[in-house]
């Protein structure tokens, strides 16, 4: 009973936080571009904007194009949002605030989040649209190539902490955060950040969306709530990335004075803002360059980091 209650609260909390993260992104981007951002709905600073967006998407007509593969088309948003939301099952949101503290937490997160790839390909294939299928193919290419550096980068904290359990990883950082380990921590964090950005399809790696050539990629034929699902999934993924990043490298809820949950929230927010900052300052890289970056730079680098981490944990 308690678990059910917690999971419902978690789900509602995720949706609310994600909704306000979109608001934050719009406000942040607005200020960065000498604009104001949302300001009309909800008088101080447009605070009701995400709710208005949600209401608009809910009442929008759900258009299903005739040539679509109905099963794949209708199932894809659910698969995508399921895969991204399931990750939160094992992410601790504070000291002992977690649904199931799995022994293989890191593995679970990596395995489940890469399932979203199937949903993206289903969306691209099911839409029966040339832009969508091109985008889905790009997505598969990109996500598979970035899975390896991401896993290898995530293995560094695992080796250093000697456990895959997220709470033990945080516990291992109670003295020194992993990002402050000389060279090792910074490089692993950088690899994690870059490959997580690629996994989340954010600029400079958002070639699946690529509206300058593929209009909106695999979401091009979706409307209404299905589109909202695909779009929310992107932000949920981002939230998960920021959370996992702050748990694995930034010491989780470790920190003086403030309560544990607040520290984690603060670090997550900072990481999220960093991702936003990257997004609104850079242009997109081409597909082949993205793949080259993954296989030629990140893959060897992450292998080297892994060996270094092994040596480190062997010596100390």
């Amino acid at each position: 009973m308690n678990t059910l209650f917690y999971s419902l609260v978690l789900l509602a909390g995720i949706l609310l936080v994600v909704a306000y993260l979109t608001w934050l992104e719009r406000k942040f981007a607005g200020r960065m571009q000498s604009r104001i951002g949302p300001q009309r709905v909800g008088k101080p600073w447009g605070l009701l904007q995400p709710i208005a967006d949600g209401a608009k998407l809910l009442v929008k007509e759900d258009i299903i194009p005739q040539a679509t593969d109905k099963t794949a088309y209708n199932l894809a948003p659910i698969v995508v949002i399921l895969a991204t939301t399931l990750v939160f099952v094992t992410i601790p949101l504070g000291k002992s605030v977690v649904l199931v503290d799995l022994n293989v937490g890191v593995l679970f997160i990596l395995a489940i989040s890469s399932l979203a790839l199937i949903g993206i390909f289903m969306a691209g294939w099911g839409s029966a649209n040339k832009y969508a299928i091109l985008s889905a193919m790009r997505g598969v290419n990109q996500l598979i190539s970035y899975e390896i550096p991401l896993v290898l980068a995530c293995l560094v904290p695992v080796i250093l902490a000697g456990s895959m359990k997220l709470s033990s990883i945080v516990l291992a950082q109670s003295k020194v955060w992993f990002i402050f380990y000389p060279f090792l921590g910074q490089i692993a964090f950088l690899i994690f950040l870059v490959s997580a950005l690629a996994e989340a399809n954010r600029i400079p790696f958002d070639i699946t969306e690529a509206e300058s050539e593929l209009i909106a990629g695999y979401t091009v034929e979706y409307s209404g709530m299905k589109f909202a699902f695909l779009w929310l999934a992107e932000y949920i993924h981002l939230l998960a990335v920021s959370l996992v990043g702050s748990i694995l490298f930034l010491g989780g809820w470790n920190g003086p004075w403030l309560p544990s949950g607040l520290w984690l929230a603060l670090k997550t927010l900072l990481l999220f803002l960093l991702i936003l900052w990257i997004r609104w300052s850079l242009v997109r890289i081409r597909l082949d360059q993205i793949l080259a970056l993954s296989w030629k730079v990140l893959f060897p680098l992450s292998l080297a980091t892994l060996i270094l981490a092994g040596g480190w944990s062997f010596i100390f």
Binding site: Q33, S34, E211, S212, R279, W280, L282, V283, R284
Partner: peptide
């Protein structure tokens, strides 16, 4: 040109709005 390279949601649009400013 920034939009062509960077898309309407990203650094491209930032440059676009600077130029239009």
């Amino acid at each position: 040109f920034g939009l062509d390279l960077g898309g309407a949601l990203g650094g491209g649009s930032t440059l676009f709005l600077y130029c239009f400013r």
